[in-house]
């Protein structure tokens, strides 16, 4: 049996319209109204990769998520589409962790779980877009990692992955256990029906806090949020004068040169 662990972050729906987001600069937090938490989209791609392996091989998929006040109904979607168990790392210490702290916490949980052949994460989270947690977990666990992957297959005890590069893709082979960060090119997560979501309630959900995990949160945090703001965007339109199209063109060229654009 192949033991697969998929790390999933719960984020606020990144597809919500910009106008629905507000910033509380004093509290350094994003204020949202009526915007649901969702599985981070790249992590959904990672779960889909795991499910495709499960379609072809006898596998067990454990979904792992860390945070504070995690939404079980939202994370249970992973069970509904075919994951076997859900492990929630829930503690006030796990709120708004930086990339290192997140990698450290998840790696600690994976170590405690013990058995793993393949660890899958999204290429980056939809809220921070840092893209470092996956590689961080691999580094802490001392296993190989392949990033930004569009296809994953297992063959003869090895993982074969297609890694997206700017002009195509690379095919990389690695021994198990390995960590893969999955990109959107792999494909969307399969749809969960109401029946599957209801049935998912019977699947096991475990919860560990910081103490049970045996990690010391204050030592983990390496980054601190200094300020949070929406950048001001200013645009100015200047009409270029001229008697003829040629003259207007010449004046435009002069303006561009003055602005040091050409």
């Amino acid at each position: 049996m192949v033991n697969i662990i998929v790390c999933i972050k719960q984020v606020f729906d990144p597809e919500a319209p910009v106008s629905a987001y507000k910033i509380d600069a004093d509290a350094k937090r994003v204020v949202l109204k009526g915007i649901p938490p969702v599985l981070s989209p790249f992590d959904e791609n990672a779960l889909e990769a795991a499910l495709r392996i499960k379609d072809a091989h006898d596998s067990k998929i454990t979904v792992l998520s860390a945070g504070r006040s995690l939404s079980k109904p939202v994370l249970m979607k992973s069970l509904a589409v075919g994951a076997d168990e859900l492990l929630l790392l829930e503690d006030s210490a796990f709120e708004e962790m930086d990339s290192y702290a997140t990698a450290f916490t998840l790696a600690s949980a994976i170590r405690k779980l013990g058995q793993y052949d393949l660890i899958l994460t999204g290429r980056e989270a939809a809220n921070t877009n840092a893209g470092t947690v996956g590689s961080g977990i691999a580094e802490i666990l001392g296993i190989p990692s392949i990033t930004i992957v569009r296809k994953v297959e297992l063959n003869d005890g090895k993982v074969i992955a297609e890694r997206v590069v700017s002009d195509g893709y690379e095919v990389i082979e690695a021994p198990l256990p390995s960590l893969i960060t999955v990109s959107n090119e792999l494909g969307e997560l399969r749809y969960a029906t109401v029946k599957e979501l209801v049935a998912s309630r019977k699947k096991p959900i475990m919860t560990w806090n910081a103490q049970e995990l045996g990690v010391e949160p204050p030592q983990m945090r390496q980054a601190r949020l200094l300020s949070l703001f929406i950048p001001q965007k200013e645009s100015r339109c200047e009409m270029i004068e001229g008697e003829t199209a040629e003259e207007m063109g010449a004046n435009l060229a002069l303006k561009l040169r003055e602005a040091k654009i050409t």
């Binding site: 649901p36 006040s69 939404s71 079980k72 969960a192 109401v194």
Partner: peptide, 23 residues
Amino acid sequence: LRAKCVEVGQVPIAHMVTIEGLK
């Protein structure tokens, strides 16, 4: 109250499916 339920993900499963379909 319902906006708050959505924010914490405490919504009926059927609504989650409906909204996914909407998106």
